[in-house]
């Protein structure tokens, strides 16, 4: 047993890591953040994707004891009150979600992509979400939503620069 202290969505948190616990289980069962999903528990589906120090990871394969001192971002931290992030809003407007089970992981992969590449090509979006399986929606609306989100972010940044 080890006490793990970390920051989750900007707030300080701590939990006791039982042997064998993954970051996914700690988030879901100990910190009450159930946005990240368990689709396979073997790193194959991407439903559990969160950002670990800014990088997308499949949290089902991250041992909880290794995240001491880390900065974690999950789907729950994206919206600012009622205001959705550009990626969330683009998924909503673009019908890029159906059952919704893959959606949190998909959105976190997209956020990570746009953080490092504000103007990705379609191929780069494909590459960024290649570890996220969606069985319902079809990837076309998802990829289009990510590109739409990128455009929204760029125009927002442009407005910011003008002020």
């Amino acid at each position: 047993m080890k006490i793990v202290s970390l920051r989750v969505n900007g707030a300080g948190q701590a939990f006791i890591a039982r042997p064998g616990t993954t970051l996914l289980l700690a988030l879901r069962e100990q910190l009450g953040l159930t946005g990240a999903k368990r689709g396979c528990a073997q790193g194959a589906c991407g439903s559990c994707t969160v950002l670990l120090d800014g990088q997308p990871v499949v949290s089902c394969l991250v041992p909880a004891v290794t995240v001491d001192g880390a900065e974690i971002a999950t789907i729950e931290g994206l919206a600012d009150g009622q205001v959705l992030s550009d990626v969330q809003q683009a998924f909503l407007d673009g019908f890029a979600t159906q059952c919704g089970f893959c959606t949190p992981g998909m959105i976190m992969s997209a956020e990570a992509l746009l953080d490092r590449n504000p103007d990705p090509t379609r191929d780069e979006v494909n590459e960024a979400i290649s570890g996220n399986v969606c069985r319902c929606t079809g990837y076309e609306p998802i990829v289009s939503a990510v590109l739409d989100a990128a455009a929204r972010r760029r125009s927002r940044a442009g407005e910011g620069a003008k002020l």
Binding site: T34, F91, L92, T97
Partner: peptide, 15 residues
């Protein structure tokens, strides 16, 4: 249900 899906608030049984 889409707003719940994109915010991670949709409650699946295992949540």
């Amino acid at each position: 249900d889409a707003l719940g899906h994109v915010t991670g608030r949709t409650e699946f049984f295992e949540d």
